[in-house]
């Protein structure tokens, strides 16, 4: 058996739309782009409307709150080590009605208890972003989404 340790380092470009989004987080703002033709709102923002295949038309600011679409509690780390305290995360629907198949949504940690994930009471609950004191223009500027 031959053992090898790869070392690959990257500098990922956030590009124009995501950079504006990340810089917005620094100011406690959740920014999205909107397509005037189909009215679709993109959060995280996109330069192009994927439905209409044309540039999006402008920026909109969304409230830093939404509805929990789904939630999970992870007892394993990314290397599959066992965690004592679960990491709770999920997707948050920022805007739209219950019946929408697509909507502006974010993936993030959710500040709640394991019990509320288990009994599903957190799904469908209203949550609000908890912002970090120190913000640098990263998805981590939001600590989590917490129930209101």
């Amino acid at each position: 058996m031959i053992r090898y340790v790869p070392k690959a380092k990257y500098s990922y470009s956030a590009g124009q739309a995501q950079s504006v989004f990340l810089n917005g987080l620094k100011e406690k703002k959740i920014l999205g782009t909107v397509c005037n033709k189909c009215k679709k709102v993109y959060v995280p923002p996109k330069m192009y409307c994927e439905e209409c295949f044309k540039p999006t038309d402008g920026w909109v600011e969304l409230k830093d709150e939404g509805i929990v679409h789904t939630a999970i509690a992870s007892f394993v780390s990314w290397t599959r080590d066992r965690l004592e305290e679960p990491i709770i995360s999920g997707t948050i629907k920022l805007y739209g009605s219950e019946r929408d198949y697509v909507f502006p949504g974010m993936f993030h940690r959710i500040c709640t208890t394991y019990d509320k994930v288990r009994d599903m009471s957190i799904i469908g609950a209203k949550v609000k972003a908890v912002w970090n004191e120190k913000r640098v223009g990263s998805i981590e500027d939001i600590q989590c989404f917490k129930e209101v």
């Binding site: 340790v5 500098s11 956030a14 590009g15 810089n23």
Partner: peptide, 22 residues
């Protein structure tokens, strides 16, 4: 809004502990 100085670059690693090839 899309000025160069506003663009963000995110540093990342692609790491695994190791590969073991048979």
């Amino acid at each position: 809004k899309g000025r160069i100085e506003d663009l963000i670059f995110w540093k990342g690693n692609m790491e695994v502990e190791a590969y073991e090839y048979d």
